[in-house]
Design a protein around this nucleic acid. Structure first.
Lengths: 341, 341
DNA sequence: CTGAAAGCGCTTACAG
DNA sequence: CTGAAAGCGCTTACAG
């Protein structure tokens, strides 16, 4: 469309210096004279020069690009995480290549391969499944990598995760105090560390607080809303249905909510509902939803911080962020008919 | 960390061919023998070779990367759009570099500069404001660009937009039929084409259906939720407050909802509420929200389709997608006290 | 502080 | 169908 794009040679020629000097000025190398700096700056402005990032990366083996691999951008938790990480990266001069695995391992592999080919400076990943081949390829090449939200067994990279246990324990205690004995749990996929950890925490807390440990009360979803609907449907159809539901992420909670509404159950009265992940509008529902909340902003920032340390060759400690129960009306008020004093 | 990364020379050596032949095999050039193809493929597999995308791009002036510039990833509309566009691009072998302008022009400029330096093959943008300098730089370089959702006056690039007018007209007619005369409108920023178009449509429809044209009934928000809260607060504080509210996007509708709930107003009875943009959980609220819906999936796919045509040197026609009203309980039922037969 | 030269890892006419 | 050679646009020792 336009002519051949302008290069550092054009800038150098216009400034009356060598390409080497122009390059030094552009990269902020202190070994330049004030005069050169001024002349090069003027030439850059006049020509509207944008250095070719490919050529720069090829020579310097730095791209200033990081890869961010997420499970599902449409999940508000990950959208917030993407926003937080991307803003934190931008503040460090890094741009973010976003890969959306769509909760699919082949698609995760595809993006990881792309990250390798693009020679990203580092990768922040919320990984699926157990070490896919591409994840191993990434690490074998020594590409700085950190995990966020999720981890993978047997892969030792720094991570930022949520301590789901505290929040889940609070939620179970809360339900037990309200007199619930049969609590249905809509679990995440057991191929993710968060899916496994949260189920473990729930089971342990259920036992500790004297809730039923009937295995039929656990339904295995996939962190997407349709499985939340199906889970609620299934659990309510049990011979002995639960009096409360806990969903392991927000899309599944939304799905469960839809099912409860469709069945005409009054949430907070006929049945209690608690969601893992706080979302702005959960507090706007009628009744507002009781949630287990954690700090997504902090998670995104911490992930970028860890990645920068790994890029610098350090071996930072993993970060674990807290979770906590926020009680709202969806978990109901004490109901004497449930046998509570 | 690991040794020097392996290159096409290593592959060629192991396969017993020249780098040129290896390159031809890798790029699918038909001028290769079956034997070469087989030997190179084996070497690639054995060495786990990933071609350096920087070097390839430098030489071939194709990066297979597109830039996607959005206003705000946390807005569910844009999250869905990002998902749709990214999946469509991936199906065409293109990876997506995501830039989140965060409804800020300087940040938009920063990402556009990055896209230029990264020599992306094309850009899909939901632009802010009137042609920022970087937007012009992009176009002057002849970088293929399409607009999605929004356009910029005086910049003639193909676009995919929503015909907001039909949906807004249906919404206003619906409210008029229910007997509403004073409808508060929470507008988007007038620096965006969608903000302007929707306000124009609302004003015209209000006049056509005999609603009040009191300018005090329009509040100017910024498409983010806090301004929806503020807008509802302001409109309800008028000497003659509106009996219905229409918000120009979903985050502002969420904000308005929060304000209405806080004030103890019963939505669908004390006041009607309609949102532009359909979001899964809007139908799950109590009462479910009446919305103006449009097809985000189709928008993302169409944007990628247009961009591919522009990259191919064609000049495709812009695409306009329809919008339509979906009536739910939040807009209420006819109320005789409002003077409707 | 500066410039000439080499080279990052590919691809692509060119000649065979 | 194949290979030798040049070159994409930068950066970086090296020598001065």
């Amino acid at each position: 469309m336009t002519g051949p794009s302008i290069t550092i040679k054009d800038v150098a020629a216009l400034a009356g210096v060598s390409p080497a000097t122009a390059s030094r000025v552009l990269s902020g190398n202190p070994a330049t004279s004030a005069e050169s700096r001024q002349r090069v700056a003027a030439a850059v402005a006049q020509l509207d020069f944008h250095p070719n990032a490919q050529a720069r990366a090829l020579r310097s083996t730095k791209t200033n690009v990081i890869g961010l691999l997420l499970s599902d951008v449409r999940n508000p938790f990950f959208a917030d995480l993407a926003h937080a990480a991307e803003q934190a990266a931008l503040a460090e001069g890094l741009v973010t290549l976003l890969g959306n695995a769509n909760e699919s391992i082949p698609q995760q592999d595809r993006y990881l391969e792309t990250f390798i080919s693009q020679r990203v400076d580092g990768v922040i990943a919320a990984p699926q499944g157990e070490g896919s081949s591409s994840l191993h390829a990434l690490l074998e090449r020594g590409i700085p990598t950190v995990f966020v939200d999720r981890t993978v067994n047997g892969i030792d990279v720094p991570s930022v995760t949520t301590d789901s246990d505290s929040g889940i324990r609070q939620a179970v205690e809360h339900l037990a105090r309200l007199g619930h004995e049969r609590v249905g749990y809509i679990a995440g996929p057991q191929t993710t560390s968060t899916g496994r950890d949260r189920l473990k925490s729930f089971s342990r807390a259920a036992r500790d607080f004297g809730l039923s440990s009937d295995p039929a009360l656990t339904y295995f979803g996939d962190f997407q809303s349709a499985s939340g609907s199906a889970g609620a449907h299934h659990l309510l159809g049990l011979a002995q249905p639960p009096t409360a539901l806990l969903a392991a992420d927000s899309p599944m909670a939304v799905g469960a909510l839809a099912t409860l509404n469709r069945k005409g159950l009054r949430i907070g009265r006929d049945i209690a509902l608690i969601a893992f992940d706080d979302i702005e509008w959960f507090s706007l529902l009628d009744p507002p939803l009781t949630v287990i909340s954690h700090d997504v902003e902090a998670m995104g920032r911490a992930a970028v911080g860890l990645l920068l340390e790994v890029i610098d060759g350090r071996k930072p400690e993993s970060v674990v962020l807290p979770s906590e129960l926020i009680v709202r009306a969806s978990s109901g008020t004490p109901d004497p008919s449930l046998g509570q004093p």
